[in-house]
Amino acid sequence: MSYPDYGQGPYGPVPQSHPNGTTILVLGILSLVVCTFIGPFAWSMGNKALREIDGSGYFYENRGHVQAGRICGIISSAMLILTLGLVAIGLLFGLLSALSDI
């Protein structure tokens, strides 16, 4: 008895989609447009998904979505760090000026 080969189509392996590909892309885009605080999540999930894709040996049709979401997460994380740094410097200068007036 032979079993059907579900992994092969008439022209080679059937492309798969990573289950978190769309989620990572949406999180990456939203981190740039709406809230930079979700950027590190897109970056982290994108790294994990790319490791899974590379380790599987299969062709994933949404690898570009995962990469784009990861890159958006990296950019958003850099903007978040820059913003928090500027806020910290502003608070430090404000505190120093308040203390110098005493």
Rank of each mutant, 00 (worst) to 15 (best):
D5R: 11
D5Q: 07
G7Q: 02
Q8S: 04
Q8R: 14
G9Y: 00
Y11G: 01
Y11V: 09
G12H: 04
G12N: 11
P13F: 00
V14K: 01
P19A: 05
G21C: 06
V26G: 02
G28N: 13
L30G: 07
S31G: 13
S31V: 14
L32T: 05
L32I: 09
V33H: 08
C35V: 14
T36I: 13
T36V: 10
P40T: 09
P40F: 04
A42T: 14
W43G: 07
S44K: 10
M45W: 12
M45K: 15
M45S: 12
G46C: 05
N47Y: 06
K48L: 14
E52Q: 14
E52W: 10
I53M: 15
D54P: 01
G55A: 02
G55V: 13
Y60F: 15
Y60G: 00
H65N: 15
H65C: 08
V66A: 10
V66S: 05
Q67G: 04
A68V: 10
R70E: 02
R70I: 04
G73M: 07
I75Q: 04
S76T: 09
S77C: 08
A78C: 14
M79P: 01
M79K: 10
L84G: 02
G85N: 07
L86C: 11
L86V: 14
A88T: 08
A88L: 05
A88Q: 02
L91F: 15
L91D: 08
L92E: 05
G94E: 08
L95R: 15
L95C: 09
A98S: 11
